[in-house]
């Protein structure tokens, strides 16, 4: 028997895709695995909220932003009200890129899945849902159960695999 690396469902040898979760059961250049040891080393600590970055003209209506927490580089992704955003990592040959593409920020090395999470904005509120990603999504250090929606607030830190993003709301400036 084969065990699905993603959901541990058992399939017969030679099966190409898991019938339970749809993961490929043959070698592909998919998400780099991160050992739990590395995870344990990382402890959640409160990070002061970053200032709201200057949005480009096409994002002037953004009500919030995801700010990359990385000492070596700066990046921000703007979020508009009443929209949904997929967050993940684009890769070569992939026909559909996530709305928030983390591949230029070491998404692969840091264990971000191609479709890792979904962010939804409705009536000024922000929600996140982990899409059963390989390495999980943490909200202020706590793992989110897959497919369940959680509310986000100003200053929250999201950890996708090992990549960190902070939620910054505009009206908190």
């Amino acid at each position: 028997m084969l065990q699905c690396p993603h959901c541990h469902h058992e399939e017969m040898i030679g099966t190409l895709y898991c019938s339970q979760c749809g993961a490929a059961l043959y070698e592909t250049a998919d998400t780099a695995a991160i050992s739990t040891e590395q995870w344990k080393k990382e402890l959640a600590s409160a990070t002061p909220a970053q200032p709201f970055p200057q949005p480009p003209p096409q994002e002037r209506d953004a009500i919030a932003a995801l700010v990359l927490l990385d000492q070596r580089r700066e990046a921000a992704f703007f979020l508009q009200n009443n929209r949904s955003y997929t967050v993940g990592r684009g890769s070569e040959g992939q026909s559909v890129l996530p709305d928030v593409d983390l591949s230029p920020y070491q998404g692969y090395e840091l264990g971000v899945s191609r479709m890792h999470a979904m962010i939804r904005l409705a009536e000024g509120r922000i929600y996140i849902k982990d899409l059963a990603s390989s390495n999980g999504t943490r909200l202020n250090g706590k793992y989110l159960s897959p497919h369940a929606e959680h509310t986000l607030k100003h200053g929250d830190v999201l950890t996708l695999g090992k990549l960190k993003l902070q939620v910054v709301e505009r009206n908190r400036e």
Binding site: C7, C21, S95, A132, P146
Partner: peptide
């Protein structure tokens, strides 16, 4: 329910929003 949730994620990855 679990299958449908997983299916939804896979469809999203294929851009079938």
């Amino acid at each position: 329910r679990e299958k449908l949730k997983n299916l939804s994620t896979r469809l999203l990855a294929q851009g079938k929003v």
